[in-house]
Nucleic acid binder design. Structure first.
Length: 409
DNA sequence: AACACGGGGGA
DNA sequence: TCCCCAGTGTT
């Protein structure tokens, strides 16, 4: 055990007192509804409080109960999560809501085995739900907690290591005052968020500075010790903004990503990989680039005429850095079926379907499936959308920016 | 144990 | 602009 008894008692007592005085008024703290706690904890994974607040309020308004969430179309849940990132959190949350309906009659379970069995709920969130919602004496060790504990107890172990988290959990459990798990765990995270910050910690206003070993050692700025993550690998992509003509005038071609992997089931502009040439954008002169993109579009059943480069865009994931060069295209009615593509009649039929449906987003007027091998690495569901359709489809931020710029907002 | 998985904020 | 943040699931 780290620290002597007095040091630990001091820590827990002062921290609880500080929390009572300075805790923030957050939407999920206004009730002790386990569903609210659960949703907030999932949203707070990898995401700061200020970002989460508006999402949480919209989410609870749209899905007030676990049953509402379980019964909603996945598309709606994803749309509610748009912009928040790590979209598997949303899909897992809904899957878990369905688990709770089936296994627990719609009530969040209050024991470790059943909580941790929920999709998207790992060791941290299990502890957060059990302690915050049910006041069970379980540790909830997130990045804030590891930072606070590593400083206060001068723990030099690499917090990126699994074993270090286990050590922190044992320590955090030991520190929970009798009957105060909910407040204590929230206090620990609150201190990490407001005072014991990653950079420039506010030691002078810290309630436990007097006995903080890291501070006394002058080590607070270099703790916690953390091994470096690998830098994201660059990827270069050619994207197409295809404008419809005729019955599809005012519409833009988008497609849905595959069911698994990066940005699963979200919508995007069609794009293809390009070879990297450092310093040259997509690494290809615009002419050949548009030719390759046109060929890929034709193979997907959308013959289109290149209209020049529109803009460059970048997007950084935790592990990939996208460099996109976006080209404008005009869809054209093919004079002959090409590349396993589409007949003029099929294009006319597509347009007619939109006319009949009034262009409704859910008309799902799909292009004929591409029978040949895919010219790129993504899914084959395409849709011609208007600006209004964007209200119902979830896009990653980079495409949201491009489309909003195009539609002029 | 290593990798996949977004987006936002602060220096 | 660059750097940092960091839970869960999959392999």
């Amino acid at each position: 055990m780290r620290g002597n008894r007095e040091t630990r008692i001091f820590f827990s007592t002062e921290l609880l007192g500080w929390y009572e005085r300075s805790k923030r008024d957050l939407p999920w703290r206004r009730h002790r509804d386990p569903y609210y706690i659960w949703v907030s904890e999932i949203m707070l994974q990898q995401t700061r409080v200020d970002t989460v607040i508006p999402y949480f309020q919209r989410f609870i308004e749209r899905f007030p109960t676990i049953r509402d969430l379980a019964e909603a179309p996945e598309e709606d849940v994803l749309k509610c999560w748009e912009g928040l990132g790590y979209y598997s959190r949303a899909r897992n949350l809904q899957a878990a809501a369905r688990q709770v309906m089936e296994r627990h009659g719609g009530t969040v379970p209050d024991n470790k085995a059943e909580v941790s069995a929920l999709k998207g709920v790992g060791p941290y969130t299990t502890g957060a739900i059990l302690s915050i919602a049910f006041n069970r004496p379980e540790p909830a060790v997130d990045g804030n907690v590891m930072r606070v504990l590593s400083r206060y107890f001068l723990i030099e172990e690499d917090v990126a290591k699994v074993g270090t988290r286990t050590l922190m959990e044992e320590l955090a459990a030991e520190l929970i005052p009798e009957g105060r798990a909910s407040d204590f765990n929230q206090a620990l995270m609150e201190l990490g968020a407001l005072v014991c910050t990653p950079k420039s910690p506010q030691c002078l206003i810290c309630p436990v500075m007097a006995r903080c070993a890291g501070r006394l050692e002058g080590a607070e700025e270099r703790l916690p010790v953390k091994s470096k993550a690998k830098p994201p690998r660059p990827e270069y992509r050619l994207a197409a903004l295809v404008e419809g003509g005729g019955a599809l005038a005012g519409r833009v071609l988008v497609r849905r990503r595959p069911d698994t992997g990066l940005l699963a089931r979200m919508w995007e502009l069609p794009h293809i990989p390009a070879d990297a040439v450092p310093g040259e954008g997509a690494g290809l002169p615009d002419g050949p680039a548009m030719d390759r993109l046109a060929a890929a579009l034709a193979a997907a059943g959308v013959p289109a005429r290149p209209g020049g480069a529109l803009l460059n865009a970048e997007h950084t994931f935790s592990h990939i850095h996208w460099n996109l060069r976006v080209f404008r295209f005009d869809a054209e009615i093919p004079m002959q079926a090409a590349g396993g593509g589409v007949s003029p009649a099929a294009v006319a039929e597509t347009a007619a379907a939109y006319d009949a449906a009034g262009g409704a987003a859910d008309s799902a007027a799909r292009l004929p499936a591409n029978a040949g091998p895919a010219a790129d690495d993504t899914a084959a569901e395409y849709r011609w959308i208007t600006r209004e359709d964007m209200d119902n489809l979830a896009f990653p931020n980079v495409f949201l920016r491009i489309l909003n710029g195009y539609f002029g907002s």
